[in-house]
Design a protein around this nucleic acid. Structure first.
Length: 311
DNA sequence: AAAACATGCAGAA
DNA sequence: TCTGCCTGTTTTG
C-alpha cells in the first residue's frame, strides 16, 4: 500500500526494463481486455509517477493510468534491474539478474522456487491469480493486480488527470513555486492540517504514514486548522516532504527517524518497528517524551500523534 | 479456517 | 460521514 515513494520506484523500474521496447499488453483476468487491445504491441515510451498515480506513456500518445489503492501491486519477472536500496538489493550498475520482485506492498523479492525437478522456471511465467494487466517484453514481464484504477487515457485526459493533483516534489520542475502553491492551498482552508496533507489535490503522494510522521517531525498538532498554521510552518512541511520522499524513493522504505545514525538506519531497514516516530505506535511511549502515542480517527483514517510533543 | 487488518479513494447521503 | 471495492498477510479461534 503504496505511498508516493513506491509508485516512483515502480515508474523507475518499468522505464528501466520496459521503456523503449515494444510490449505485449494483455489482461489475463479479462477486466482490462479493451484497454489492453488498445495498447498491445506499442512501444512503451516511459513510466512516470505523480503522487500515488502511475502514468505509462505509449508511442501512440495514449497513457495507461494506474492507481494501486490499498492492495494493488506490481510483480516483475525475468530481467529486473536492481534499484538501489530495494528488495532487489545489489550494487548500482550490477549486471541484470533474473528474479521476481513485488512492488506495492512492502517491496520484496518473491520466492523464486524452481519446480520439483529443479529446472529453471519458465519465462514468461503463467499469470498467478487475478492479473489485471500484463506488460511483457521479450525479457521482462510486469503483472498488475488489485489496482483501484486502471484505464487508458488520451493525452488530453492524461494531462487533466495530472492537473487535478497537487504538486509532487519528485516531479515538479520548480520546487519553490510548488511550495507557494501548497502554502496557499493549506492556509486557505478551515480544515485540519492532518486532513489537508492527505488531500491529493493539495499536495500529492502523502499517505497515512508520511502524514503522521511529517506532522510529528514538525511537532505540529494535526488538528490545527490549515488557516491557523503559519506560512513558514507549511513551507517547512513541504520542504520536509521533499526530503522524506527523496529518501523513500532512494531506499524503498519509509524511515523517518532523523535521530538514527547509519547503523540505526540499517537496523530500521530490517526491523519495521524501528522506522517511525508515531505511526503504528498507539499506546507505546513517545520516543521523545515518553507520553503514550494516541490513535484516533480523522476523516475515517487512523491518525497517530503525540499529544505532548505536537502542539 | 476464519477473521481482522492494511501505506486508498470514489460515490452516495 | 458512511459504504463498497480491490488483494494479500497476519492474527485469532
Amino acid at each position: 500500500m503504496p505511498e508516493g515513494h513506491t509508485v516512483h520506484r515502480v515508474a523507475q523500474q518499468l522505464t528501466l526494463d520496459l521503456g523503449g521496447r515494444a510490449v505485449a499488453v494483455s489482461s489475463p483476468q479479462g477486466r482490462f481486455a479493451a484497454g489492453a487491445r488498445r495498447l498491445d504491441g506499442q512501444v512503451l515510451l516511459r513510466a512516470e509517477a505523480v503522487g500515488k498515480q502511475l502514468f505509462v506513456t505509449f508511442a501512440s500518445g495514449d497513457v495507461l493510468r494506474v492507481h494501486l489503492g490499498l492492495y494493488g501491486a506490481w510483480d516483475l519477472h525475468g530481467q529486473v534491474t536492481p534499484l538501489a536500496g530495494g528488495a532487489a538489493v545489489s550494487s548500482l550498475g550490477a549486471p541484470r539478474v533474473r528474479r521476481a520482485v513485488r512492488m506495492g506492498e512492502g517491496e520484496s523479492a518473491l520466492p523464486w522456487s524452481p519446480d520439483a525437478e529443479g529446472t529453471e522456471p519458465v519465462f514468461p511465467p503463467e499469470p498467478v491469480g487475478q492479473v489485471r494487466v500484463r506488460l511483457a517484453s521479450a525479457t521482462t514481464v510486469a503483472d498488475l493486480r488489485g489496482p483501484t484504477a486502471c484505464e487508458v487515457l488520451d493525452p488530453d485526459q492524461a494531462a487533466a488527470a495530472v492537473e487535478r493533483l497537487g504538486p509532487d516534489p519528485a516531479t515538479v520542475d520548480d520546487l519553490a513555486a510548488a511550495r507557494q502553491v501548497v502554502v496557499a492551498r493549506v492556509t486557505a482552508r478551515g480544515v485540519p492540517v492532518g486532513q489537508l496533507l492527505m488531500d491529493q489535490a493539495v499536495v500529492a503522494g502523502i499517505g497515512n504514514i508520511y502524514r503522521a510522521e511529517l506532522l510529528f517531525r514538525a511537532r505540529l498538532d494535526p488538528w490545527t486548522l490549515g488557516r491557523q498554521v503559519p506560512t513558514g510552518v507549511v513551507g517547512a512541511l513541504w520542504d520536509d516532504w521533499a526530503v522524506l520522499l527523496a529518501d523513500g524513493i532512494r531506499t524503498g522504505a519509509i524511515i523517518t527517524r532523523d535521530d538514527l545514525d547509519a547503523d540505526g538506519r540499517a537496523h530500521a531497514l530490517l526491523d519495521p518497528t524501528q522506522r517511525h516516530w508515531v505511526y503504528g505506535r498507539a499506546g507505546l511511549p513517545c520516543r521523545v517524551c515518553g507520553t503514550p502515542v494516541l490513535v484516533e480517527p480523522m476523516a475515517a483514517r487512523k491518525l497517530y500523534r503525540c499529544p505532548s510533543c505536537q502542539r
